[in-house]
Design a protein around this nucleic acid. Sequence first.
DNA 1: AATGAATGAGTATTCATTCAT
DNA 2: AATGAATGAATACTCATTCAT
Lengths: 203, 203, 203, 203
Amino acid sequence: MKPEERKNRILDCAKRLFSKNGYHNTQISDIISEAGIARGTIYQYFQNKEDLFSSLLDSLYRGLEGSIIISPEEVKKYMARPGSYLGYRIKRTLEYFYSDRDLCSIVLRITQGLQPEFGHLIRRFENKLMELLKGDIELGKKHSTVRKDIDTELTANLIAGALFRISYNYFLSDNPRHGRVDIDEITEKIVSIFMKGLFLETS
Amino acid sequence: MKPEERKNRILDCAKRLFSKNGYHNTQISDIISEAGIARGTIYQYFQNKEDLFSSLLDSLYRGLEGSIIISPEEVKKYMARPGSYLGYRIKRTLEYFYSDRDLCSIVLRITQGLQPEFGHLIRRFENKLMELLKGDIELGKKHSTVRKDIDTELTANLIAGALFRISYNYFLSDNPRHGRVDIDEITEKIVSIFMKGLFLETS
Amino acid sequence: MKPEERKNRILDCAKRLFSKNGYHNTQISDIISEAGIARGTIYQYFQNKEDLFSSLLDSLYRGLEGSIIISPEEVKKYMARPGSYLGYRIKRTLEYFYSDRDLCSIVLRITQGLQPEFGHLIRRFENKLMELLKGDIELGKKHSTVRKDIDTELTANLIAGALFRISYNYFLSDNPRHGRVDIDEITEKIVSIFMKGLFLETS
Amino acid sequence: MKPEERKNRILDCAKRLFSKNGYHNTQISDIISEAGIARGTIYQYFQNKEDLFSSLLDSLYRGLEGSIIISPEEVKKYMARPGSYLGYRIKRTLEYFYSDRDLCSIVLRITQGLQPEFGHLIRRFENKLMELLKGDIELGKKHSTVRKDIDTELTANLIAGALFRISYNYFLSDNPRHGRVDIDEITEKIVSIFMKGLFLETS
DNA sequence: AATGAATGAGTATTCATTCAT
DNA sequence: AATGAATGAATACTCATTCAT
């Protein structure tokens, strides 16, 4: 097995274990026995447990960037109709979390109770999504598809929180839903709420 | 100092420390030195660290129940206008988290990465809110103030996620906002989004 | 057993083991099994292995100060005849090392190859003796009992080196001499060399 | 690079590192990175770390033998005047240590705290010097240049201890003296003490 | 001969919990 | 009830050595 392969194998096993048991309840011993390597080997690739976890977060983050960024062509395409653009963003975000349950668990759950030493790495995920959402909202305001009186920051938080919780609750294996999850359907439902609101018109 | 007092003192110190440092990074040593008691004393009141944390979650949970449940009279009062009822629920929920930053940190952050051993205790908070929100939505549907085509479960998750994130981001001391937070204002903004949606009517 | 007793017991066992096996070849495990205590107990009294060793050096050093300092009355008493004062100093120094073979081994042997982190503590022993010897020589020059043309620093080094080596070679248990060592006799021989030199007068 | 060259290069780097950091604080990693070779290569030339250190001591010892042995012709030459012979021995010994600071540090410092496993190799240095010094003294006694009443063994230890300490303190780079060290001057001062003693004649 | 990734025994240290006083 | 010294299982990390390439 080549070094690069082995490193990825370690990261992979670590991802599974961290996602299942959390940072503190995952021991180096667990990781090496899962990966089928010797105790010392792990320290050839990572300085220590913290560095391993950081590296893992790093690799997950790189996946995020690739997944949820929308290209200029796509922007044009989806900008036409209000809601269609937001829907696309939502769908892409849900797809990111849906694509990898372990990732989802680590980013949305494991990561949360950790110490400031990981703070920076942890925030990157939400900061990135927040940044994109705020950009989307501002863009919408500029194009006059989004109401100008809404609070950008608060709304971005509202959407992000909604997406995190829905991802967490619908995608994680230990919170199983009956049948397969249909992201298009969920997206549509969410967009519908943000399009029309919750309430009937009380003309 | 009376036993009951002492127990509360321990819980209080533990709350501060857990909220700041997390479960694993808070040591018994920290708690006893913060509480000014002897090492053994803590075990007179709690079986072990886990029991102490559970007891703490218990006491926080009892506060939740008292805070966000809406009495039948209030239901009547707020049911009249669509949105006013939801707004009231949102406000009460935000107030609950705003009232105690440590509580907010523990419930929304510290608790997240923990092991299944706490799972049950942890879920109670969100389950309670979810139950109430779902009830609200169903009630709204029955009274024909809420659109019948929305997905109750998903919408409850959406609202809960939004409220959690907003609480976390606006109330916690280490995520400071400029100036004091105005819950009424935040509530109004959130309600507005759920009333009218995000978008301008495109005639 | 009282805490103070226990701490001394640990220091005592550590002294024996360090003196025999050196710093790096003495494990915490060795010390605790020698002292008959639990693994954690040692860390109640000392921060870590380094701190334990430092504390040990400290206590040995305090013994040195008590042993080789000569009171003003003694100075007067011995100052009368040249050589008698130096002899007294030599005797006191030899007695210090002779009194405790472990001390002797630690100060003269174990300590030598260690890292800068102990440098300060290690130097104290030789610095103290050097300081005293240099004082003695200067005093002798002032009283015109010592030749004014000798180099104080170099001579102090010469005497110190001689005393260290003789102590090490005559006193240490693993460098055994036949029969008991007679410090008075050794002292006399050393003084004789420094009194008359090594050589016959070749008048 | 030829094998022999490479082996010497390793020994050379090891010497520098051991002399600076001691045996236990010098890692194989340090040596290979200093020598610019691969980890495995070192084991082609030496069985293990202990063997490497032994080989190093061996090579240093061979230097000692070459340096401080005095040829029969020289014996004749210097035997004439008392003191001149001893002075020559002292000078040669000091020169040996002065010629190589790393050697000096290893022999006089690093080596000291080590375990019995090196005992034999370590003693060789001092044994050799002791053997020579004792021979010198006995020779002096035979030629009636040295006082017959002095204790050969003790005196040899005294001189050896003095030379070790003076070498260590005057030659090592981390115990710097102002200006360059003049071995002839030091030798002269030492010999003077052993010639005339320390004290003024109080006839 | 040279390489360097892999190995795993060895070690210091932590920290929740106990229990004699 | 309160104390705090003692406990020891658990754990991360090191580093000399090996061996397939």
